[in-house]
Simulated assay, not measured.
Amino acid sequence: MAGENNPNYSDAKAQTTCERCDAIFEYYPSAKKGRFCGDCVATNEWQEPPTLTGESNPNYTGGPATITCDECGEPFERYPAQVNETANLCGESCRADWLSAAFTGEGHPNWRGGPTGPYGPGWREVRRLALERDGYACVLCGTDAEELGQNPDVHHIIPVRAFLDEPRLTVADAHTLDNVCSLCVDCHRLVEHGGVDSGALRAVI
């Protein structure tokens, strides 16, 4: 028995669209709903999932947004899911500068209120006095604690190691107000690499 005479007959063929190539094809409603046309099934193309990009992707959130670099202030693009609550930086150069400032001194996760050990007694007090004397600002460029997001570094003009190498002196002799000055991270790096001599530092305190 065929057609309407068949006890399993439910209806004639229905039409639908191939999910792969958009071709129109027919299928029997009594069978499982067709998803792919005969050509796509024959070539196995139905086994290759379509590429979902842009708005077609179920995870699409509107594309990249323009935000401002927390280090240099320049605008750049970043996807919303990649926006960081701590800091958003436009490149490796800004990332290195931010890390240098954020994890120095009080920003360092191991900070415990100032160096101990080799710096010995008297260091914390002279550090506090130096910051107060210098107005919590770098004596070379004037950048203050508010702009830095932390207190400036306090630098020994004559290094502590010079006092350790002199048998008649102790490390405590290095901790005098005329031997320390407040410096921002960048100026401190410049001084440590010989960019500013000790005479110039003494002249500005």
Rank of each mutant, 00 (worst) to 15 (best):
C184A: 10
G114K: 00
P58I: 00
E106P: 10
V154Q: 03
A2I: 12
G91P: 04
T66C: 00
Q15D: 03
R161F: 07
Y28W: 11
N8H: 07
E71P: 00
R124K: 14
I205H: 05
S10L: 13
A96Q: 14
G194C: 04
S10P: 02
V126N: 05
F103L: 15
G117C: 08
S56R: 15
Q15P: 00
A145Q: 12
P167K: 13
H188G: 04
T116S: 14
C187V: 07
I157T: 03
E85C: 04
S198C: 06
E26W: 10
G105S: 01
L99Q: 14
A42W: 06
A101N: 12
G199Y: 11
Q150G: 12
R202T: 11
D39N: 14
Y9N: 06
S30N: 09
E92H: 12
G107M: 09
D97E: 13
R112H: 13
T17P: 04
E147Q: 15
A12F: 12
G199P: 03
E55I: 05
R168K: 15
L131D: 04
T116K: 14
G105A: 04
T16Y: 13
V83N: 02
Q47Y: 10
L183M: 07
T53C: 01
D70Y: 11
E71Q: 11
A101C: 10
C72E: 05
L164G: 12
V204H: 04
G73D: 02
L164T: 08
C69D: 05
Y136F: 14
D70S: 10
